[in-house]
Amino acid sequence: MNSAQNSETASHAPSAAAVGPADERYERGLALLRKVSGHERADVLDSLADIAPDLGRMIVSFGYGELLANGRLTLEQRELATVAALCAMGNAAPQLRFHIDGALNVGVTPAEVVEVLIHTAVYAGVPAALNGIAVAREAFRDRPGLAHEPVATGEGERRYERGLAKLAEVDGHAGEAVVASLQDIAPDLGRYIIEFAFGDVYSRPGLDLKSRELATIAMCTGLGTAAPQLRVHIHGFLNVGGTREEVVEVITQMAGYAGFPAALNAIAGAREVFAERDR
């Protein structure tokens, strides 16, 4: 589900023979890809025509025609989740650029894009967030009419109290238990979680808590190294108004960006969370 890199496209779209017989999945995927990319022609087909045309067809038919076209998440939710995961994984800058553009094309605001990239600093580190911001800067510059005013809130006072309240709002006892578990070995780490992650980042305006937790699920799934934290944030997403169906859908979507093993492992975590909440 990646765009072509910034290469020239052919003078015409691939023929029907080049991409295989037209079918419902392909046509549906092509229509959705056009909406996300903002282009009439799917550059990804041209970029792969000389080496792996079947991959291009699979991206359109499966990636967009099946994985993303079922309506279980809005396009805005899907693009924010994809931007979050690609930024966190840090290994797909061209595709991150494509999906930042895609997010803007489907109605995500520049402020929301920036917020999800800042949010990445908590789960994938500051370098990942900085690299994501650099890609967003280029995307914004290439849209001369785009209106974006940076938000500089400052850290403010009472970071600990603000963070503790936000942590309780999102994660409840699960978050508090994580912080408490650090008191005997790394109490400062617990304090940083409260003050920085929740007092500074989660408390920023510009992105609602449900969107933040959706992005966090996408990041933790994509990274594949944070199963306990993924479970905490699946709880958090449900606590702030998300549904189980949305949890399953965003994890399923990550199969296209982080691979099926990452999605399967995350689904196992979701199953545990759902069972816990049913007891």
Rank of each mutant, 00 (worst) to 15 (best):
L86I: 03
Y26C: 03
L67W: 03
G222C: 10
N265I: 02
Y160Q: 09
I194T: 14
S37I: 01
R141Y: 07
S15R: 08
V116T: 15
V232L: 11
E40Y: 02
R159T: 08
R271P: 08
S15Q: 07
G224E: 06
A31K: 00
E157M: 13
V19A: 03
D23I: 06
I267H: 13
A93E: 15
R159V: 14
Y192R: 09
I217P: 15
E157S: 12
Y192I: 07
F274E: 02
R162T: 07
L45N: 02
A168Q: 11
G65E: 04
L80C: 03
E246K: 02
F237E: 03
E161D: 14
L130Q: 11
N239T: 09
L238Q: 12
G259N: 10
V114W: 05
T82I: 15
A92G: 12
L209C: 06
L230A: 02
A227G: 11
A69S: 14
P261N: 06
V170Q: 00
V106S: 12
S7A: 08
E138A: 11
A111Y: 10
K35W: 00
L164D: 12
R244W: 13
P144N: 08
E115V: 00
I194V: 15
I267D: 10
G29S: 00
A215R: 05
A42I: 04
R271H: 13
C220K: 12
A81M: 05
G145L: 02
S3P: 13
L230D: 06
R212N: 05
P144H: 08
I251L: 05
D54W: 09
A275P: 04
P228V: 00
I185K: 04
I194F: 05
V36D: 03
V178N: 09
A186E: 10
A10Y: 11
R143A: 10
A84M: 00
G65L: 02
Y26P: 00
G38A: 01
I59T: 09
L96W: 01
G102L: 09
L96G: 03
G172Y: 07
G224H: 13
V178T: 13
E27Q: 11
Y257G: 05
G206T: 04
G222N: 08
H12E: 15
G222E: 09
A226W: 01
E138R: 15
S11V: 01
V116L: 07
V113Q: 12
G224P: 15
L164N: 09
Q77G: 03
P144E: 02
F98L: 11
L130A: 14
V135Y: 07
A31D: 10
V116C: 11
R212D: 09
F274K: 10
T153P: 03
Q77W: 04
E8V: 07
D50R: 11
L209S: 07
Y257S: 06
G154F: 12
H173A: 13
A258R: 11
M89H: 09
F140Q: 08
A152P: 06
E176A: 13
A4V: 06
A255K: 01
K210M: 01
A17M: 14
L117A: 06
A81W: 04
N2H: 14
E8N: 09
V19M: 08
F198Y: 15
A69K: 00
F260M: 12
S15K: 15
G29E: 00
E8G: 04
G241D: 13
H39R: 15
L73W: 05
E8Q: 07
S211Q: 15
R97C: 04
N105D: 05
V248N: 07
D23L: 04
